[in-house]
């Protein structure tokens, strides 16, 4: 009954109708802002839409760090090198703390670069709201963009420092120091991820709480310094009596640094259990952190 022409026409009509329907659907999508949202209303899709902003923030952090400096990116490596020299003198020579038979340079440097990454991220992330209230007070974007980009941009710094570590490492390895790299070195990406995760989690929890209670800023400032001594950086975990080691292991950064030292240098303590504990704690911190952060970001302008 219907010719081909008619069929085609019907087909076109159906397509147009469907198109209109879809378009109407689009037209009806309102964004709704409600006063209170549930804790789990995370909106990660929105975060993904702002991925270009994360990239721009990372770029900005890196580029502006060494603008108008003479040494430029060299500052990235100078800091851990000087700290290592200081540690070798104070803790190695003066205090005579054991380095587990590893050359002091390698022993301290390996711990310092990871710790620096952790401490830098934690410090800056904990200031997310106070540092950015100017921008946050004027434009809306998912605030989580800022701590995430800080964590990523510090990663670049870590990479540069790590390259120097590799050079030092190869030198000592070639000159026959007592270093035994092993298969556990493959954990490295996971360890970096865990460091990033723990600092991000703690950082955003602190940043959310400091918007109201400024006391925490002071607590964190010296807290991070003390925390370093509760992490086996200037001493090997072995040097702690075996029955007290669990106390240091409760610190989630301990197993991260010990695992790295175990894999790269062949000394130290490796424990699946404690590594798993750190990983679980990291996941928990991030989840709780994002939940609190998400709640605070909506009203912090009134309290900051």
């Amino acid at each position: 009954m219907y010719g081909n022409k008619n069929k085609a026409e019907v087909f076109v009509r159906i397509i147009t109708f469907a198109y209109k329907l879809v378009k109407m659907e689009n037209d009806l999508t309102y964004t709704i802002i409600k006063p209170q949202s549930s804790l789990l209303d995370l909106n990660l899709r929105e975060l993904w839409q702002y991925r270009d902003l994360i990239r721009m923030y990372v770029k900005r952090d890196i580029v502006t760090f060494y603008k108008q400096t003479i040494l430029g990116p060299l500052w990235f490596v100078l800091q851990p090198v000087l700290t290592t020299v200081m540690f070798m003198f104070v803790f190695g020579n003066l205090a005579g703390i054991s380095t587990d038979g590893i050359p002091g340079v390698v022993f301290y440097f390996s711990g310092i670069i990871i710790w620096n990454y952790f401490a830098d991220c934690l410090n800056r992330n904990s200031r997310t709201f106070t540092d950015n209230q100017n921008v946050f007070g004027k434009v809306y974007f998912p605030r989580l963009v800022v701590p995430i980009s800080v964590t990523i941009s510090n990663l670049v710094r870590l990479a540069i420092q790590f390259a120097l570590f590799v050079v030092i490492y190869i030198y000592f390895f070639a000159t026959g120091a007592d270093i035994e790299p092993n298969i556990y070195l493959l954990f490295l990406p996971l360890l970096v991820l865990m460091t990033a995760g723990i600092s991000l989690g703690f950082g955003i929890i602190f940043s959310s709480l400091t918007t109201k209670y400024r006391d925490l800023t002071f607590l964190l400032q010296f807290g991070v310094q003390l925390w370093m001594y509760a992490t086996p950086i200037i001493y090997p975990l072995n040097s702690i009596p075996a029955d007290k080691q669990w106390l240091i292991q409760l610190n989630p950064m301990t197993s991260v640094i010990e695992t790295f030292k175990y894999g790269a240098l062949g000394t130290g303590v490796f424990s699946w259990g404690w590594l798993g504990y750190s990983f679980a704690l990291m996941t928990l911190l991030i989840l709780v952190g994002i939940m609190i952060f998400n709640k605070i970001e909506k009203s912090f302008m009134d309290t900051v």
Partner: peptide
């Protein structure tokens, strides 16, 4: 969306 209101809703397209 810089700050949050206390009650009510806003819809926008």
């Amino acid at each position: 969306r810089v700050t949050k209101h206390t009650t009510g809703t806003i819809k926008y397209k």
